[in-house]
Design a binder for these strands. Structure first.
Lengths: 382, 382
DNA sequence: ATCGGCGTTGTAATCGATTACATCAGTCGA
DNA sequence: TCGACTGATGTAATCGATTACAACGCCGAT
């Protein structure tokens, strides 16, 4: 049989072998049922035995085995958080903090997994997690419902929350980003700008699509007939993306006087590159970013941006998920919208008096390969 | 008994009720042992039955219950990653990517938990995780071995890796940060600087201590008798910390001409504040940061920094942990050092010809409450 | 004295997989 | 033809907790 000597902190070929519930029961002179009850439902146990059990637990350093408990009660108190590698790190880190704060306060552990649409291995890992009982729900920052072998994460029937993204069949927590970006364009128009350039992020990204759709819809409105909107691709929510978008900008003629980026990183990279080419911000071109990351305050000039409530998004996402998990029956899908806030600062100003530059007075970009034409709007939006 | 109709994707009061191994066995006309073997050790099962089992698994959408498996085989294939809230987000995000990449490739899930030395609740959660069998090992980015109720994370006997930090009894993965910061000071001295200021991060932080210890040891060396080192507190690895350190700097007389910050964020905040006060960088003061975050390339001027191999740190940390977990017996503690790299750019230059300014020509800081005196070196280092 | 009810405690079934061991069929060599 | 061996499969024990149910003692009401 099993060794009868009690190992308090014994180690045995690499794995810890702690006390089991039976050891505690023996030590306290009670049954295992009483030990279990004393720990989980203290009110059901007499003061006398409760104390004996407590002493035995402390003496042996007992911690209930999580797998055994999970198997029996079918609750893991663990949730999955799916992220995307291409995300903006400063944005993501804050959201994660909100999630962690709320989840840990409620006693949930958080499993973090990147998902970048890889071939099939990671997809299967994630889908299996949903079906294996390890997980009680998931927060998806990717907007993608991962699928593998004919099953999707949704099929497990667990609550799912899309955070900063929307997917069929999930709860959603969003911001009013569409309104905000339109409001930004409107404010720039009030400052006299008529020629706009949108710096797009990864076209497959949900937020990217929403922002572009809102912006292009606004410009398509006949009441905005005097305004012009073009679009340049950055490829990524990154400063590098901003650098490459700047090359496209420098090739345009006439040059737009107002630039709206789909992420602060893009705006920051863009500003650096155009200023290096002798273009003034905001004297020649106004730049508006998106997200409100910390470094928007520290670039030159200080970046106008749309501030997203990052930590609050994480907190709300967590609460929505926890509520769905703990509801006695399947709750209806909920949809929340948190407000983002437009913050105009030094990188935006009145349109230059002479109107748009012809793209001549500044030194042309040293080596720009194949003038990137502005890209037509994709099918979605309108 | 249990319903005999097989629920393929059935949901039942909120929780998914998938097929169990017995259902698969019945469907395939074999025993549960054969199903288990067909999935885990296919070579032990005849081709015929292997195929029947595979078909049944696919038909029923069977995924083994993780808790039951864990209970039996005592392996969770899950590791814990402990972070600290006060960490630099861009730094942290990259390290996390490295960890995730390596862990997921090896089939491990990653539980993420912030630890900020909170009263006791979080500590207990973490320690309990170590003892409850949920976790097979942990990577600690905090340098703190969490303890609660007389037990520490170490006591569970599981492998622990300290990443970018060192703690007794753990494997460590570090960078040569001490050498690098001294090399940075040396290079600045070669540029003619003699009056240095160190912008400290949170004094309880491991990296902060190592950097300060190395730097103060270097300046204490009699061969560097002509050099002077002072220290200002930033409180945090944050741009805000840099702003407040700048106030201390502006109050010094004579003002140091070389500033070494313990994090890029601090350096970036510092540069912004002193330039706003009319001090030129690098004409009046040279600034060297630490970490090599993306935004060091986008502030004004471009920040000289010490680049840390962030993703590589994460990857190595994960590999060290996995190796320790999978070793047949307790392996000896290992210690790795990855190289960081000094990168001098626009924010550092020759010492101003006139030597240090007297702290007069620039507008004094508007409201500086109680001139912050330079802080004496703490006990460690020498 | 008898009964019902309540509060406390113990016994044993249960969760769902893995795997030691037993069983059985088939193969090969003597 | 028999026994030893091999390979495939099934039976049932096992992991460690939770909890339904039974048992028990004690109380007050009848």
């Amino acid at each position: 049989m099993r060794s009868s000597t009690v190992l308090v902190r014994g180690k045995q070929n690499g794995a810890a072998r702690g006390a089991r519930i039976g050891d505690v029961a023996r030590e306290a002179g009670v049954s295992t049922a009483t030990v279990s009850r004393a720990l989980a439902h203290p009110a059901q146990v007499s003061k006398e035995l409760r104390e004996r059990v407590g002493a035995a637990v402390a003496k042996l350093g007992y911690t209930p085995n999580a797998a055994a408990r999970q198997l029996r009660v079918k609750r893991s108190r663990t949730v999955l958080v799916v992220t995307r590698r291409r995300w903006s790190a400063p944005f993501f880190a804050e959201v994660l903090r909100g999630l962690d704060a709320e989840l840990s306060a409620a006693g949930y552990a958080m499993v973090l997994a990147n998902f970048d649409g890889d071939g099939g291995n990671r997809s299967r890992q994630l889908v299996d997690m949903m079906f294996s009982g390890t997980i009680e729900g998931a927060v998806m920052l990717s907007g993608i419902v991962v699928a593998a072998e004919g099953r999707t994460m949704l099929d497990a029937g667990l609550p799912l929350v899309s955070l900063c993204a929307a997917a069929e069949g999930t709860h959603t927590v969003l911001t009013n980003e569409a309104e905000c970006i339109v409001e930004g364009a409107r404010r720039l128009a009030v400052l006299g700008h008529t020629d706009f350039l949108y710096l797009a992020g990864p076209p497959s990204n949900y937020n990217e699509r929403v922002r572009w759709a809102a912006l292009s819809a606004f410009f398509a409105d006949p009441r905005q007939a005097g305004l012009r909107l073009r679009r340049a691709e950055s490829g990524d929510f990154s400063t590098d993306g901003g650098l490459s978008a700047a090359q496209a900008f420098l090739g345009l003629s006439p040059r737009p006087t107002a630039v709206i980026a789909s992420a602060d990183e893009i705006a920051i990279g863009f500003m650096k590159a155009v200023r290096a080419a002798g273009i003034g911000v905001p004297s020649d071109v106004s730049v508006l970013g998106f997200d409100g990351i910390e470094f928007a305050d520290f670039c030159e000039p200080v970046l106008s941006t749309i501030r997203q409530p990052r930590e609050a998004l994480g907190r709300l996402g967590a609460r929505v998920l926890i509520e769905a998990i703990e509801a006695p029956s399947l709750p209806p899908l909920s949809h929340h919208v948190l407000p983002s806030r437009l913050d105009f600062r030094a990188s935006t100003g009145p349109a230059p008096p002479g109107g748009a530059s012809r793209g001549r007075e500044a030194a042309p970009a040293p080596k720009r390969k194949g003038a990137r034409a502005p890209v037509p709007a994709p099918a979605e939006g309108r």
